[in-house]
Each structure stands twice: as C-alpha cells, then as structure tokens.
Design a protein around this nucleic acid. Structure first.
Lengths: 315, 315
DNA sequence: CGACTTTTATGTCCAGGACAAAACAAGGCG
DNA sequence: CGCCTTGTTTTGTCCTGGACATAAAAGTCG
C-alpha cells in the first residue's frame, strides 16, 4: 500500500524515567490498535474514554496505559463484545475478560509447541528456526502446518495481545515461520499445476502467515499458487485474475480485520470477478458469523482448504 | 484505514455501459490512490479539484476520471512535484508529465534486465522466476544483486510510476525476487556469524527489497543477519538489540519515506541505543542531502555496505 | 554565491453535528 | 414457544469550516 500513513512529523515516543515511553499521538493509535482515530474520538465523546492529555497545541496525547486498554478493547470487540460493554472498563477488568475469552489454549498445546513458545519468549533467534525446521522434517508438511504452525501462530497472537511477549519476539517467530513455509512451498510447487490459485489479502490486512500456510499445503497437493503479496486492491485483483488465467482467488482474513470491511470487500470482489473464478476466504477472521457472502467459499481451517481443493479437482 | 463503509447493495461500484465503474465514495479513494481523505478534501477547498458529485445524503462520490487524475497526481508528488503544480491539471497533461518524469532509463539497461522486464510486462509468473534464478546462478550473488536486482527494482518502480505496468505485475516481480534473495540469504547465513546485524525499516516504511539485498550480501560475507520484518517501532528495536546481542542495526529507507520522519527516527534511535551499537542506513532514501545524523553511517549502495562490513571486521 | 529570515504552501488535527446501517428489544401471530 | 415484523438504541463514518506547525520557496544581506 503506497500511501500508508507515515509517522508524524514530530517524535511520538518520548522517554520517561521508567524507560517506558510517554504519551503517543493519535496517529500512533491507529498503527498500534487498528482503531481509526475517528472512532476513538467518538468513544471519548460518548463514553468518556479514552481521556488523552493534550500537548501545547491542543492535540491529543494518549498515555501508554490507555493505549493498552484500547488494544484489549479491540480484541474484545473482535470477539463479539459491543463497545458499550467494554469501552471505559478498567485495565485489569479488560485483562480478565480477554483472559476468559482466550481461555488457556496454551495449557492444552502439545509439548513441541510449548517448547517453541519458550524459544520465542527467550528471543532465541536460531533456536526458533531450528526447532521449526526439525518439526517440519519430523512431521511432514501437512501435519507440521496443521499441528504446529497454525496453533503456534494463534498462541503467539494471543500472547502478544496479552502483553506476554514483545513485538520483536513475535516478529522473530513470524519471519522464521514465513521462511520455512516459503521454502516448503517453493520445493512443492509446480508451475504448471492445477488449479491456478491467486493468493493475497484485502487492502488493510497485513497478516500473511495464514496465507503462506495455505499456499504450502495447496502447492503440495498439486495446485499452482501465485502469491502477489498482501493488500492487493480489488481492481488489480480482477485484472490479475484475468491475465494470469486464475481459477481461484484465495484470501486470508485475520481477526484484526474489521468484519464490515471484509464483507464489503468480498461482495465487491464477487461482483467484479467472472463467475467462473471462485473466491475462497480463510483465516481466523473468516469464520465469524455475519460473513455470509453468496458466491464466496469460507474455509475455517487448513483441512477445509484441502477438502475444497479435492472437490475442485473432482470436477 | 478501517472499515469501508458500504451499504449492501447500492453504494460504490456500479457497472455502466462501458464496463467501467461508476462514482466511488471517499473510502475507495484512500485505497485506490493512497491519498488520505483529509488531503483530498483540502485540495477540493484549495484548488477546486477534485469536484465530486454528492449522493442523496451529501456524501462525496468521485467520478472514475477524477480518480484516475488523483492517481497520476500521487505519482507526480512522489516524483517531487508540489500539489500546486499538478492538482487540477487536465488528465492528458498529467499523463504527459508522468511520461516526461520517468524518461527512459530503460534504454541503457543490460539485455538480461530488459528481458526480465518483458516477462514482467507479460505477467509471466514462472518466466520471471526462472529468469532471475538463472541470472543468479550465472552471475553469482554479489554481481546478481548489484547488476541485476538493484537496477531492475529501480526500473520496475519507475515503470509503475509511469503506469507502464500494473501493481500486480510489480508484485509478481517483488515476490519472486524476495523469494530468491531469501533463499540465497538462508543458504549463506551462519547463525554464529559476526557481526550480528539486526535488519528492519522504520514504522511507515514498507519497502523491503533493498533490505533483503543487503541481507543476502552481508550474510555471504559472514555476518549474522537477523531480520525482524519491516516497521519495527523504535522502542522495540532497542529492546531487540539488547536481547539479541546486536552489534549493528541496519535500516532501509526508500525515497517515498519522508526525509523529516527519517531524520527524526534516526536521531531518536541514536539516543536510545547504546553507543556500542552501530546504526547503518541504506536505500534510495538514505543518500538525500539533509540526512546527516551524527552516529549514523549512511550507505548509498550495496558496495558501501560491503565496505562498511569489511571495516567493521577489521576492528 | 551562501547563510539567514520571511512568506507561502501544505498536511494534519480539532470540534461538534448529522445520518444510515447494524444490533438489539419488543410486540404480534402462527 | 418460535419466528417474523417493527420500533429503538447503538455505533461507525462523513461533513463543514477552522487552526496551526512545519516544509518549501522566495527574499535579503553579508
């Protein structure tokens, strides 16, 4: 996306005594929470929260703590809560609610997954990569994706939300997994495979791990996956589908991606694409309730994607 | 950034006789041109352009033609023009200006590079990958990066600017090159290499090809490159440098990244990082005039990066 | 011609209001 | 009691018109 909003002119984060960083301007809120500044301002009107300080110029400066609350609120919203129920609640209450929502999925995770999580917590760059590579070899690609990569991503995402791990630690993991999946896809892919699947995310959706997992699996099953990177505008997508002779457009939606925008995008896409081209939507954000768009196939998990591919091949 | 607000049936894209689409709401402008709605509205005040219709509710609806103009304007701005000079000019004039700006640097390019450009124009997914892979094998990594990857990226960027190739075509190329560089980095990298280099971009900077090129080269020369993905906030970067025992932080800045934000980010980083940790800044955006930040080493091109690494190793 | 100062251009933020679509609640009828 | 229809509240997005800091350009002086 060419025109993503740039960092503001003056320095947002400022050191304070504790080594933490001071209040952040509204622009940073958008980046850090995914909530638009308009909505945050409206909440201020309606609920009295957040309650930012002001700089000398009258611009809002949000204390770190309120940003943390907003992040939790965003998470709860995407879990189905309405703003009225969560905006303005104290931080600890929100934390408890998030903890309830994301029950202890970690407890039930397999040992191998837990061990990788430890590596991530330690920030052990090579440890993460080695562990993942070893698991891939041991389990084989399909099991690796289903039993390791997918649950691990979910757990890491939750841990990040809970403030349990740092951004850079999540990045170390994401990059490592992306590398490994990419390599697996490359070695599995056949350029003349069938069907031809175009893989991308809607504009605004930056999470691509799910897409890479799907790519690896589908390529293994003989499809020709063409990845055009995240955030391809609808018009470009239609053009690409035509020029590249695409059978299926596969999209990945994360939970962070607003349902509204997702539905609108899918509906528009369905209208613009030829009927012969199928649309598959997967990812955590795709199995939310109201996302029923006619002519779009929803794939709640990797297994569903494999199934869909089998059915397609049968025709 | 957040939801496209769209009524189920009637709002944005409406087919008309030509197969084109009808007026689009302001939200679509942001996605399609990368210009924020606030800026577009201000231009309407100040220059009388764009001049959208209104729907029954008073909301703006931009005719397709004006959207096209805005897209060209955006390109001209990123090429250095000021809004006053371009906003409101007729469509054909803008087209001419864009053509003039991106004169044919392509003419002087080597034949191999031209051939890849043709593949990109054709949208030949596998052709691009095969051509790049073959060139890498023939030239070896250092020459491939310096003589093929770098100039090719520049040419593709210009062609995109000119409207000569589509976004999805640029993406095909970027993904292919990223894959190839990634693989090269992986096979070259040693986890216990020295120095330990943390690679990322400032928040707001999404271009990473330059970083990947540098990574491949530096890894080949024995460094341990740790890539944490683009747009790592300064605070996280400092944390990561500490936990990962980093010697050098390498940043990539594109021309699109505003100089002021870049300088601010670098200054802040220099303040927050321990003195022992070096900061290297590379990419097209790094050799602009006023970017002299004390304690930051600027690397105008890949060769300079190699040189810097040699000097570091000598100490 | 170069460093400094003034002016203009430009992007971002603000306040407070309006409105439609979505979510929710309530009532009516099989 | 369940399901559909209808009224009410909630919520997100857009609007107008204005203020202001900073980047860029123009002007000034040594």
């Amino acid at each position: 996306m060419r025109g993503t909003r740039q960092a503001p002119g003056h320095l947002p984060p400022r050191e304070d005594a504790t080594g933490e960083f001071g209040p952040v301007p509204v622009t940073a809120i958008e980046q850090e929470t995914g909530l638009s500044k308009e909505v945050v301002r409206k909440w201020e009107d309606r609920f009295g929260f957040p309650h930012p300080h002001r700089d000398s110029q009258g611009n809002r400066l949000y204390p770190r703590e309120q940003v943390a609350s907003l992040r939790l609120i965003q998470r709860l919203l995407s879990a189905g809560y309405r703003p009225r129920m969560v905006v303005g609640r104290p931080l600890d209450v929100l934390e408890q609610m998030v903890a309830d929502v994301t029950a202890d999925a970690e407890a039930g995770a397999p040992d191998e997954v837990k061990r990788v999580l430890d590596d991530i917590r330690q920030g052990d760059h090579t440890g993460i990569r080695n562990a993942l590579t070893a698991l891939l070899r041991r389990q084989g690609l399909p099991r690796f994706v289903k039993e390791t990569a997918a649950p691990l991503s979910a757990l890491v995402g939750e841990a990040w939300l809970r403030g349990d791990i740092h951004v850079f630690q999540e990045r170390l993991f994401s990059e490592a997994l992306a590398d490994i999946l990419r390599e697996a896809s490359l070695s599995a892919s056949s350029s003349d495979g069938h069907p031809r699947i175009l893989m991308t995310t809607p504009p605004g959706e930056t999470h691509i791990l799910g897409l890479r997992m799907a790519e690896a699996i589908l390529a293994l099953d003989g499809a020709c996956c063409i990845n055009v990177g995240p955030q391809l505008p609808a018009a470009e997508l239609v053009l690409a589908a035509d020029r590249l002779d695409i059978d299926i457009v596969a999209l990945s939606l994360s939970l962070a991606f607003p349902e509204r925008a997702a539905a609108a995008f899918l509906r528009e896409l369905r209208k613009l694409l030829p009927e012969a081209v199928e649309i598959w939507a997967g990812g955590m954000g795709a199995n939310r309730g109201a996302l029923a768009v006619p002519g779009v196939r929803f794939l709640p998990d990797i297994t569903a994607a494999e199934e869909a591919l089998k059915q397609f091949a049968a025709r």
